[in-house]
């Protein structure tokens, strides 16, 4: 062994040993399937014939010419915006309110978290009733309070269906944001809050000037997870509308599924998957880059 390449020291060896299994799992279960998807996307294949036909980039080109594809892309982007704002904002609001020492805190805490534990198919089934357009809970309540004019054909109107699905997903996922923010608020040292109060800050000011900046780590987690969930969104849409009516609520993962198994177009579905991966990369990569940069920052601390 040449002397320059000295044996790595004990710490480095330990580090490598620790990373070996996770990295091996990652390569096997992430990298290999992605490469195989890219391979499939360059072929025309029904999904079960013994042979497939090489078509080059044709699947990619065809998709770019389809309004259906762009509709799904736009839906995905809308979902990202929605997920970054609504469940996150609601979760923050609820956490901030509940953090002020309200009686029955534990009941509220369980209630806000509960929907998050329900499986997606059940969420879909429950909200199919909520949104039943003539006798469902939502329409009934609106009529009871004299706002019957606001009632909509919740899941059947192509112009409304995305908002309806978002409402259901907000109900489903706000619990996560709430939980993280609530934990974040409880982690803020009481001295900071006390100090602000002594200086005469109102609770509103205290929250925005003192608590919120200290919540940044929680916010990062919630925003990142929300964006990732929005890109991967599948279950609830598939189980509630299957992307309908007439593709109006389709997101990329749903389109991929429909092409692959609804129409036996495995190659084209794989091309959708690769586009989805690229789009996620564009939207989420900055976040991941930011997170990995924090490694250096925390080392500097």
């Amino acid at each position: 062994m040449p002397p320059r390449l000295k044996m790595p020291n004990r710490t480095t060896r330990t580090h490598i040993a620790f990373l070996a299994l996770p990295v091996a799992l990652f390569v096997t279960f992430y990298i290999y399937p992605i490469i195989s998807s890219i391979h499939l996307s360059l072929h025309s294949w029904d999904g079960f014939s013994p042979s497939m036909r090489w078509v080059g980039l044709q699947n990619y080109v065809t998709l770019l010419g389809q309004p259906r594809f762009f509709n799904a892309v736009i839906n995905n982007v809308t979902w990202v915006v929605f997920m970054l704002i609504v469940p996150t904002g609601t979760g923050l609001l609820l956490a901030a309110l509940l953090d002020r020492g309200i009686r029955g805190e534990s009941v509220f805490r369980i209630l806000f978290f509960l929907p998050f534990t329900i499986p997606a198919v059940a969420v879909a089934a429950i909200w199919r009733w909520m949104y039943e357009p003539s006798n469902g809970l939502l329409t009934t309540v609106l009529e009871l309070v004299g706002l019957g004019g606001l009632a909509q054909n919740w899941l059947g109107d192509p112009a409304i269906v995305n908002f309806s699905l978002m409402g259901a997903v907000a109900w489903w996922t706000t619990g996560f944001a709430f939980l993280v923010f609530f934990a974040g608020l409880r982690n803020i040292p009481t001295e900071c809050i006390e100090a602000a109060r002594i200086e005469g800050a109102t609770p509103w000011q205290t929250f925005w000037k003192v608590s919120f900046p200290l919540l940044w780590p929680s916010t990062i987690i919630v925003l990142g997870m929300s964006a990732i969930d929005a890109m991967r969104l599948f279950d609830v849409v598939w189980a509630t509308t299957q992307g309908g009516p007439a593709y109006s609520s389709e997101v990329l993962a749903v389109q991929m599924y429909d092409l692959a198994f609804g129409r036996f177009a495995m190659g084209r579905a794989s091309a959708v998957a690769v586009y989805l991966l690229l789009l996620s990369a564009v939207i989420i990569m900055p976040y991941i880059y930011y997170m990995s940069k924090r490694v250096t920052e925390s080392e500097a601390e």
């Binding site: 199919r128 949104y131 039943e132 357009p133 003539s134 054909n153 919740w154 899941l155 059947g156 109107d157």
Partner: peptide
């Protein structure tokens, strides 16, 4: 029927 597209077939059967 009004709002038919927002119903499942069992919901319409219920109607």
């Amino acid at each position: 029927a009004d709002n038919w597209s927002g119903k499942t077939w069992t919901q319409t059967a219920d109607d």
